[in-house]
């Protein structure tokens, strides 16, 4: 069994780096101010949803361009049950996941039963996300276009049960989620299902000839990825305390989710995390620098993201991680795009 542990033992520099990073992330709330903490927090959020998306695209090879759908569904479900019925988000989360999983299963059923692949599948995911956005813009129970707001009572007392509290609490929640998902992924992609996903990604006909029920495993990938993404959505809704259909389901949101894993490296364990840690802070630095210059321009950050995406896909289509891993002295599958 070649786990991450074994990979890292073969690369002491990487192991040291990871240990330092881990320690720094653990004590970060004590060291940095609220703004910087919020930047790291959002970075971790993108690392989380990026990992969730990567399971489906990077490992199972199914391109979803509508992943904001699941962020929105998870967030809206948990927030609505919290606001209307006082339900704890830990239970609301289950509802959110169920709703997202149902949508994902619907998309999967439509697409995979009829053999819709590639571009068509991607378009179907966008279409369903947009369809849902417009639906929510007319969904009065959750505020329609006016937005849906969670009451902000205190930021001092941490109430983990109701997920109300200080930025530091949210920070530790998302840190735990991101690390937890990473560890789960390590186990997942070295499991039978992980290998089956990669087989499907590489060649569906060959996969099926080896006894893999490709329909079932693609469905599992879509539903699992959607459920995890919905979990991220619950976190985001409770952290932001507001939800707007355009910001929850909009296509620009879906694109934000997929940037980090593509830039970091599709189908790698570290790629989505590395991508998030490159992209989000750079975007923030850019906005901050322009702010300092007295320039406030909408679109600069995303223009920059677009440029990075263009450069990466042209010259490093496997992403930054495989290249970085080789420099760290990591060999083998984790260093392969």
């Amino acid at each position: 069994m070649r786990g991450v542990g074994a990979v890292l033992r073969g690369a002491p520099r990487a192991a040291t780096g990871l240990a330092v990073l881990g320690a720094a992330l653990l004590v970060a709330p004590l060291l940095v101010d609220d703004y910087l903490l919020s930047v790291i927090l959002i970075t971790l959020y993108f690392a989380f949803v990026g990992q969730a998306w990567n399971l489906m695209m990077g490992y199972a090879g199914q391109l979803s361009l509508g992943h904001a759908l699941y962020v929105g569904l998870g967030g809206y479900a948990a927030a609505a049950f919290f606001v209307h019925f006082g339900l704890t988000p830990w239970a609301g989360m289950v509802i959110g996941i169920l709703v997202a999983a149902a949508f994902a299963a619907g998309i999967g059923l439509l697409a995979f039963r009829f053999g819709i692949g590639g571009v068509y599948f991607a378009l179907l995911t966008i279409a369903v996300a947009e369809f849902t956005r417009i639906l929510f813009e007319h969904f009065e129970w959750v505020g329609a276009t006016g937005g849906f707001f969670l009451p902000v009572e205190n930021r001092e007392i941490n109430d983990l049960l109701m997920l109300r509290g200080s930025p530091a609490m949210f920070y530790y929640v998302i840190l735990a989620m991101t690390v937890g998902l990473f560890l789960a992924n390590v186990a997942l992609i070295r499991s039978r299902m992980g290998y089956y996903w990669m087989a499907i990604r590489e060649d569906q006909d060959a996969a099926q000839a080896l006894g893999i029920n490709t329909f079932r495993y693609k469905m599992m990938a879509v539903v699992l990825s959607a459920s995890l993404t919905a979990l991220g959505g619950v976190f985001l809704a409770f952290y932001n305390n507001n939800l707007f259909p355009i910001d929850a389901f909009g296509i620009h949101r879906s694109i934000e989710i997929i940037l980090a894993p593509i830039i970091g490296g599709l189908g790698t364990l570290f790629g989505p995390i590395l991508g998030a840690f490159i992209l989000t802070p750079l975007g923030e630095v850019l906005t901050w620098a322009l702010d300092q210059l007295g320039v406030q321009m909408a679109g600069v950050k995303h223009l920059f993201y677009g440029l990075v995406l263009l450069v990466i896909i042209r010259s490093l289509p496997g992403g930054v991680w495989p290249w970085f891993a080789r420099r760290l002295g990591i060999e083998g599958p984790e260093a392969r795009p």
Binding site: G118, V119, A122, G299, V300, H302, G306, L307, P317
Partner: peptide, 18 residues
């Protein structure tokens, strides 16, 4: 296919924000 898609997605992002 997905790399072509991402390339043109990048072009799209550049155009919108430009």
């Amino acid at each position: 296919e997905h790399e072509q898609f991402i390339l043109l997605l990048a072009v799209a992002i550049l155009l919108v924000n430009g």
